[in-house]
Every structure is written in structure tokens, then in C-alpha cells.
């Protein structure tokens, strides 16, 4: 009797302990974002005083260092454009290699596998110079091109989904006289809504999460050009951290909210994508 009662309790205590461990940094983020002291608290976990001023300053009191609204807008514009381009690219490539049969199909797919093995920012050194010779560094167009230019390489997950669409469906449409373009837009796309949602959201989230490419391309030090990621990173500079740490946390909370919502929507497809992709080619 006692054993039956203790075991489940122990199980839940263990889980609570683990969750607490995982959530401590998140608690700290939220608590510090309301902290009355602008720097890093080193002696206490819970701040000594609470205030909304960090959010207020971040949203309405932009200064030369912290221009959160501008960064947010920049990132949003970049995210929208690169999301549109890369979603189209991914869907187009996936349909071509999944549903159509042509001579160089296998060759192209093998090449894509090889290209994916290079570290992404190895090519960035050269991309930087290419963009520079067209005067596109330190511009948002350049960054959009960097995010979406090679998006076609990330087709595997969507291809995996298209592979599961019965070929008979397409055959039937062909007999009815539909051409490939019609089959793609009128038949395959409408029944692929889940994977389109996944593609769009993950493409939209990439610029919000990315730090390194933005830092290479937007390197002029003009803070009104930055994205949220570089802006927030810069707040933690040795000379700034004691004035801006609380605001950094507030910024972190603010961008985490929309990202969490989007992530929750695509969570289901995330798992499906990873477990359905893989070796089959």
C-alpha cells in the first residue's frame, strides 16, 4: 500500500526537480526583466525591486545603444521577405524532385547532399565579398538574399511529405487533362497544408534566431541597421552590460513570446519532419 503511494510521488518529485532545473534560467530571464537595477544582479536571484521601466525604456525610450523597435521592425521585414522567398524555393524544389522524373534528378540530389556537408559560413566569407562588390553588405537586401538564396537545399523534409502523397492522385488529374503546373498548385499544395505551415514558420523563425550571418553581413556598427539578435548581443558588451542587462532580458522576453506561439504551432510537424525524412531518396 505504502509502496504504491510512494513510487508515483517520487516520480513526480523527480520530474518537478528536473523541470525546475530547466526553468531556472527562464525564471531568471523574466524576473531580471522586471528588475529595478539595470545591471547583472550577482548576489541575489530575485531582484530587490520590481519595475516596468525596462520594458518602457526598451519600447519607447530608444537611445543610441538600444533601439529595440527599429531592430524588431528590421528583423520583421527581413523575416517576411526571406520567408516568402525560401518557402517558395523549398516547395518548388521539393515538388520537382519528389513528383517529377527527369534525367539529372538523382545527380542533383546527390550534389545537394554534398553541399550540405560544408559548414554554412565557410561560403559566407566569399558571399560577403560578392555582396560587397554589389554594394549589398550592411543592407537588408543582402541579408535577405543570404537567408533565402540557397534555401532550395533544405528540401528534404518537404520532399518526404510529398513522397507520401499517392501517385494515383496525380495520375488521375493527368488523365483529366491537367498539366504539371496545375497538379502542383491545385492538387498537391492544397493537401499539403501542414507541411506548408511548417515550412513557412521555420523559414520565418530563422532570421529571429540567427546571430552569426547577421553579424557578418551587418558589420558597420550602425545600430539602427541591426536585427534583434545582434542588437541584444551588443547590449552585453563589457562596457554596456551594467547599464543594459535588465533591458536585454526584457528584449529577450519580448521576442520569445511571438516565437513561442509560432513554435507551438509547428511543434507537431517538427517531429514528423525529422522522423519521416532521412535516408530514403
Amino acid at each position: 500500500m505504502i509502496k504504491r503511494f510512494i513510487k508515483p510521488t517520487f516520480r513526480h518529485i523527480f520530474l518537478s526537480f528536473l523541470s525546475l532545473f530547466w526553468l531556472i534560467p527562464i525564471f531568471w530571464l523574466v524576473l531580471t526583466s522586471f528588475s529595478g537595477y539595470p545591471g547583472v544582479h550577482i548576489s541575489r536571484f530575485v531582484p530587490s525591486s520590481f519595475t516596468f521601466s525596462n520594458y518602457q525604456l526598451l519600447l519607447f525610450g530608444a537611445d543610441t545603444v538600444a533601439q529595440f523597435p527599429t531592430w524588431f521592425l528590421n528583423t520583421f521585414i527581413i523575416a517576411v521577405f526571406s520567408c516568402v522567398i525560401s518557402s517558395f524555393y523549398v516547395l518548388m524544389v521539393s515538388y520537382a524532385v519528389s513528383c517529377m522524373r527527369f534525367k539529372l534528378r538523382k545527380t542533383l540530389m546527390n550534389l545537394a547532399v554534398i553541399l550540405n556537408l560544408f559548414p554554412a559560413f565557410l561560403s559566407m566569407i566569399a558571399v560577403y565579398f560578392i555582396l560587397k562588390s554589389f554594394n549589398l553588405t550592411n543592407s537588408h537586401i543582402g541579408l535577405i538574399l543570404v537567408y533565402s538564396g540557397s534555401a532550395g537545399l533544405g528540401y528534404l523534409i518537404v520532399k518526404g511529405f510529398f513522397d507520401t502523397i499517392p501517385a494515383s492522385l496525380r495520375e488521375a488529374a493527368k488523365i483529366e487533362g491537367a498539366n504539371e503546373a496545375k497538379i502542383f498548385t491545385k492538387i498537391v499544395l492544397p493537401i499539403s497544408k501542414p507541411i506548408i505551415v511548417y515550412t513557412v514558420i521555420s523559414a520565418f523563425l530563422a532570421p529571429w534566431m540567427d546571430f552569426i550571418f547577421a553579424r557578418i553581413i551587418l558589420n558597420s556598427g550602425i545600430s539602427s541597421d541591426w536585427t534583434v539578435a545582434i542588437g541584444l548581443y551588443n547590449m552585453l558588451d563589457k562596457n554596456l552590460i551594467n547599464l543594459y542587462f535588465a533591458r536585454f532580458c526584457a528584449g529577450g522576453v519580448l521576442i520569445s513570446i511571438p516565437i513561442s506561439i509560432l513554435f507551438m504551432i509547428m511543434q507537431k510537424f517538427y517531429v514528423e519532419g525529422i522522423t519521416s525524412g532521412g535516408v530514403k531518396g
Binding site: W22, I26, W208, F211, L232, Y233, L236, G252, F263, M264
Partner: peptide, 14 residues
């Protein structure tokens, strides 16, 4: 899952 939703650069810097 909440910890995934916060961008890595925020949590890592934190």
C-alpha cells in the same frame, strides 16, 4: 518545450 522557444542567443548569453 518552453526552453526551446526562447532563442538560443538569449538563453546562452544569459
Amino acid at each position: 518545450v518552453v526552453t526551446i522557444a526562447v532563442p538560443q542567443f538569449v538563453t546562452l548569453l544569459l
